[in-house]
Amino acid sequence: MHPEWLVGGVMVAALVLYALLGGADFGGGVWDLLASGPRKREQRALIERVMGPIWEANHVWLILAVVLLFTAFPPAFAAISVALHVPLTLFLLGVVFRGSAFSFRSYDARGDRQQKRWGFVFSLASVIAPLLLGMIVGAVASGRIRVASGVVTSGFFAPWLSLFPVVVGLFALSLFAYLAAVYLTNEATDPALVDDFRRRALASGCVVAGLALASFAASFEGAPLIREGLTDHPITWPLHVTTGLAATAAFVGLWTRRYGLARVAAAAQVALILLGWAASQYPYLVVPDVTVEGAAANPVTLRLVLWALGAGSLLLFPSLYVLFRVFGSGRAGAASTGAGDHERE
C-alpha cells in the first residue's frame, strides 16, 4: 500500500476515536443543557463526574488528525483552512469556551450564580461546537469548495451555509448526544438515573435515524458525488448493512436493559458511519478537486510520518490505558455520591 493511503487510514482512525470519545463528551454537554425533571442536579453531577478526569485527553485524536493533514497533505489543509476558516475559527472558540467554562464551573462554589452561568456557557458551547464540526465535514464532502491551481475560488460562506452541511451538522450533533446517553446508562448506578438516560438514548437514536435519512436526501442536490459513493461504491453496501445491524443491536440492548451490549453496539454504529463517510468520499480529501494522491507530500516525508506515528504510539497508547484505568473505575459511584452532595447543598 502506498504511504499516503496508510497515513490517510490513520487520519480516519483518529477521527473515529475522536467521535467515540470526544464526541461523547460533546453529547454530555447537550444533556447537561437539557437536564430536567426531579433529578436534574443528579443528571448534571453524573455528567460532570464522568467527564472530569479524562475529557481533555480526548482532544488528542483531533489534534493528531489535523497535524497529519497539515504534514502529509498540505494542499488539502490549505484548501480547508482557507475555504472554511470562519466555521473552523468558531469551532475552536467553542472548544475553548467549553473547556474553560467546564473548569470554572467545576471549581466554583456550589450553587453560586456564577457557577450556573459557566454551566450554561459549557452546555451551549457543547451544542454549537459539534454542530459546526458536522457542517465542516458536510462542506468538505459537498463539492462546493472549488480549488483551481491551489487557490480557493468558491468563497468563504456558501460552502458551509447550504442545506447539506447544515443537515450533516445536525446529524453529527444528534449522533454525539445519542452516544453520550448510551454511555451514561452504563456509568450511572442509581436506577432512576439509568432510566433517565435510557429514555434519552432511545429518543435521540430515533432522531439520529431521521437525520441520517435527511442527510441522504439532501445529498442528491447538495453532495452528488457523496451520494454516488454511498450507493455505487462496492464497499459501502456492506458498511450500510453492518451499520444497520449495529444500530438494531444498540436499540435491542437499550430496550432489554442490556446496557453493556448497547454501549458496544452504539460505538460500533458511530464508527461504521464514519467509515462509510470515508469510503463514500474516496479518493477525495476535498470533493471534487483535491484527491489523496494529488495532495500527498513527498514519499520521504510520508515515510518519516509513519515512523513517527509508530514511535509515538508506543508512548500514547500505554499512557491512555493508564489514564482510563486509573480514572475510569469508580466514576459512576462517585457521580451518584456527588449528586447527593449537590442535593444536600
Rank of each mutant, 00 (worst) to 15 (best):
Ile47Arg: 12
Gly52Ile: 05
Arg39Phe: 04
Met51His: 02
Ala35Ile: 01
Asp32Arg: 03
Glu48Ser: 12
Leu33Asp: 08
Gly28Ser: 13
Gly28Tyr: 05
Asp32His: 01
Ser36Trp: 15
Ser36Gln: 14
Leu33Ser: 12
Val50Gln: 10
Gly29Pro: 14
Ile47Met: 12
Gly28Asp: 09
Pro38Glu: 10
Leu33Thr: 11
Pro53Cys: 13
Arg49Phe: 11
Ala45Gln: 05
Glu48Thr: 15
Gly37Leu: 09
Leu33Ala: 14
Gly28Leu: 10
Pro53Gly: 09
Arg39Ala: 03
Gly27Met: 11
Arg39Asp: 08
Ser36Gly: 12
Leu34Asn: 07
Val50Glu: 00
Trp31Asp: 00
Phe26Glu: 07
Gly23Leu: 01
Gly27Trp: 14
Lys40Phe: 09
Arg41Tyr: 08
Ala35Cys: 07
Gly52Glu: 01
Gly27Asp: 12
Lys40Val: 04
Leu46Lys: 06
Arg39Ser: 15
Gly23Asn: 08
Arg39Cys: 05
Trp31Met: 01
Pro38Trp: 03
Asp32Gly: 05
Gly52Ala: 11
Glu48Gly: 13
Ser36Phe: 09
Arg49Ile: 12
Val30Ala: 09
Ala45Ser: 15
Asp25Ser: 07
Gly28His: 08
Gly29Gln: 09
Gly29Asn: 07
Ile47His: 13
Arg49Pro: 12
Gly52Met: 01
Met51Phe: 02
Gln43Trp: 01
Asp32Gln: 05
Arg44Trp: 06
Trp31Leu: 08
Gln43Gly: 07
Asp25Val: 09
Gly23Arg: 00
Glu48Val: 07
Gly29Met: 14
Phe26His: 13
Pro38Ile: 11
Ile54Cys: 14
Ile54Val: 14
Gly23His: 05
Leu46Asp: 00
Val50Lys: 00
Glu42Leu: 04
Lys40Gly: 05
Phe26Cys: 01
Leu34Lys: 02
Gly52Asn: 04
Ala24Phe: 12
Ile54Pro: 08
Lys40Met: 03
Lys40Ala: 10
Glu42Asn: 02
Arg49Lys: 14
Ala24Met: 15
Gly52Leu: 01
Ala35Trp: 07
Gln43Pro: 04
Ala45Lys: 08
Gly27His: 13
Phe26Lys: 10
Phe26Ser: 01
Gly27Tyr: 07
Met51Tyr: 00
Ser36His: 13
Ala35Tyr: 08
Ala45Ile: 03
Gly27Ser: 08
Leu46Arg: 00
Leu46Met: 12
